[in-house]
Structures are given as structure tokens and as C-alpha cells.
Simulated assay, not measured.
Amino acid sequence: MITIKGLSKVFQSRDHQVKAVDNLDLTIEKGEIFGVIGYSGAGKSTFIRLLNRLEEPSGGQVTIENQEITGLSKKALRLTRQEIGMIFQHFHLLWSRTVKDNIAFPLEIAGMPKEERHARVQELIELVGLSGRENAYPSQLSGGQKQRVGIARALANNPKVLLCDEATSALDPETTDSILDLLVDINKKLGLTIILITHEMHVIRKICHRVAVMEDGKVVEQGDVLDVFLHPEKPVTRKFVDQVMGDTEQAHSLELIHQNYASGKILKLHFVGENTNQALITELARNFTVDINILHGKITQTQKGAYGTLIVHVTGDSEETDRAIAYIKETSVEVEVNPNA
């Protein structure tokens, strides 16, 4: 478990102070993939660098498995950092070294014997899917392959925690998905705790169990990813959810329907988990004398299950429409009735 209490970082310029991280509290469970999302300037990259003291905190505590990182001497910190792997947006590889030599570098620093080092490197090359590329140099690799080298190198000393600072931001969408799949595989195989910093909700949606949303150095919202998708509370969180669920298109559909139809009601339905397979619209059409026009819909997958939204326009006798809405509310599908309809 990772416990963060009152963590702060203040940068002092000649004229003023900047609070990059402001009295932040978080608890991250052992073995989970925890996402931290925020726009540029939110403080998320500073936050992750405070966890292994690449940045020295101005205040607060970071405790990883009962060891307080913020209280360690420099000598003790060097040893502890072997248990905290880190991967970066721009890879940070040694360009004069081959793939296997890049991966071996932290093992050399740790003083591992050559034979053991070679065996460990081969194990890691297979784990990250780089077999056959052992002798290639970084300049001969694609972006995804470079990041796989970075991941293997970060795992070399069998860390307890893997920190990922915008690890997929420099990659194309297809390569991003392959790297995210690799991180999920590593999490399951090794039971590794992964803390992932990003500004892309797609990344959070695809692999994270829980998420914290940062704004102006503070955590403004946190929870299970699926819960955050279902009930975003803060404006910044709703913007991130919109990245994945396409609420811009939904809003446009609602605007058009209001312009063209004076009667009926607009319903926004939320389907979770197995409910995404429910034939609700068919049941409504069979059981109630209403007409249903589907305006917009989307289903996306999270680590905790599927989440879908569907916007429909329902017309018919007012009493019958109300009965249909009441029927929906009796199911586990959430329904919002548009107040302007």
C-alpha cells in the first residue's frame, strides 16, 4: 500500500511562489493500477516525481509498504529507488547501448554478477515482447519498441511499484493500446502496483482500476473508474469523460431534437456491466404504446466492466410515456429525463 499525506511542492521564483502540488492526500492499494489525470499544469508530473524524490517535497509524507520515502537519507533513498521503477514519455534510453545493454544498465549499477544479469535481461526481453531485437540500438527501434525497452529496464530490479509519467503520450493510438495491454499483463503476472500519469481519459478507461483527477495541484475527484464515468462531479472530470463518451455529439443531437420536436421527452439512459446487453428498447416498444427514436449511443469498456449511454426521444400519450419511464427506473438502467423536453 502507498499512503500519501499532505504532500506539497512549492516552486519559488524571484517574484512569487507556485504551488505545483498542494496538500495532497491519497491511498493506493497494493497491486492496483491507479491513474492520475489532469490537464497541462495540473501538477500531476510533479506529483509522480515526488513519489521517488526526483523532486524533493516541500512538505508531507510518502509511505510505500511501511517505509517513509520522504524521511530517507540519500544513501537509503538510492537503495529504495531500486524498488520503484519509472518509465517516461520520451523513453530516456542510452543511445550508444543496445536493447539488452540498456536493460542491463540498472543491474550493472546494482552489482549483479554477469551471468545472473544476462539471464535476467533475457527474461525481461521475452516479457515485453522484444525477442529478436536484443542487439538493436534505439535509433533502429519504433516508438513502441523503445517504450518496451524502457519498461523492461524499469522492471530489471524487481520493483514493487512502477511509475509511468505520460508513458504513451508520444505514441500513436494503435501503439498506445499495445503498451497499455502490456502494462495490464505485467500487473497481472507480477502483482505490480502501477501509478500512471496521463492527460488522456482513454488510457484511464482502458487499464486503471481507480483514478484521481488533479487540477491546480489538488485532487478534486477520485474513485473507481466506472463510478467516475457514471457520475463525474467536477467540470474538469466531465470534460475528461467527454473525451471517451462523445458528449459533444450528444449535446448536438439534443439541440437538434429540441429545434425539430415540440412534444415528447428526451431520455438519457446509462447501462452498466451486463445491462449493456439488455434489450430495453425492444421491451419498451412491446409493452408500451410509445414511439422511440434513438438519437445517440456509445458503449465503452473499463477494467470494472462495460459502460454505455443511449439518448432516445420518446413520444406518445403523456400517461403512457410516464409508465414507460417508471418501467425503466425499475430496472438497473439509470435514466435521466431531460428537463427542457
Rank of each mutant, 00 (worst) to 15 (best):
V62C: 12
E56Q: 08
L124W: 10
A42I: 08
K5S: 14
V128G: 05
N66K: 15
I325R: 08
L310R: 03
D15G: 12
F88W: 07
H296W: 12
R205I: 02
L141Y: 07
A76E: 15
A136Q: 07
E83S: 15
T176R: 11
R53Y: 04
R53L: 09
I48T: 12
L190C: 02
H118G: 00
T282L: 09
V335C: 15
T175E: 04
E320T: 15
R238Y: 01
H258K: 10
L72E: 04
V184M: 13
I179F: 09
V10H: 05
G60K: 12
R53P: 06
A170W: 01
R205W: 02
H199C: 10
E115V: 13
H270F: 10
V314G: 08
I28A: 05
R81D: 09
Q301V: 09
S142H: 04
K329T: 11
W95M: 11
I28T: 02
I179C: 09
Q89Y: 12
Q12Y: 10
D15R: 06
E116T: 07
M214A: 08
S142M: 04
I207F: 11
V149I: 10
T302K: 02
N52M: 07
G6E: 13
D216I: 00
V272R: 07
G305Y: 13
D317S: 10
A119R: 15
I179G: 07
I197G: 07
L72W: 03
E123L: 08
V335L: 11
Q278P: 00
I294R: 09
G217Q: 06
D247V: 01
V21L: 06
V272G: 01
K160D: 14
K30I: 06
N187R: 05
M245R: 00
L196N: 02
R53N: 06
D185H: 11
N23A: 10
P106M: 10
K189D: 06
D322V: 04
I186D: 01
G273E: 12
Y39R: 13
S40H: 08
C164V: 03
I299G: 06
H231A: 10
E221G: 07
I37R: 05
I48D: 09
I33G: 03
N293I: 10
H296D: 13
I207M: 11
L295D: 08
I69H: 02
R120A: 14
H202I: 02
T315C: 11
K268T: 15
E174D: 09
A76T: 05
L267A: 10
K206Y: 06
P57W: 04
I179K: 06
E55L: 03
F105I: 03
L130I: 12
N293D: 12
H313A: 12
R153Q: 02
F271V: 05
M201A: 12
G264N: 01
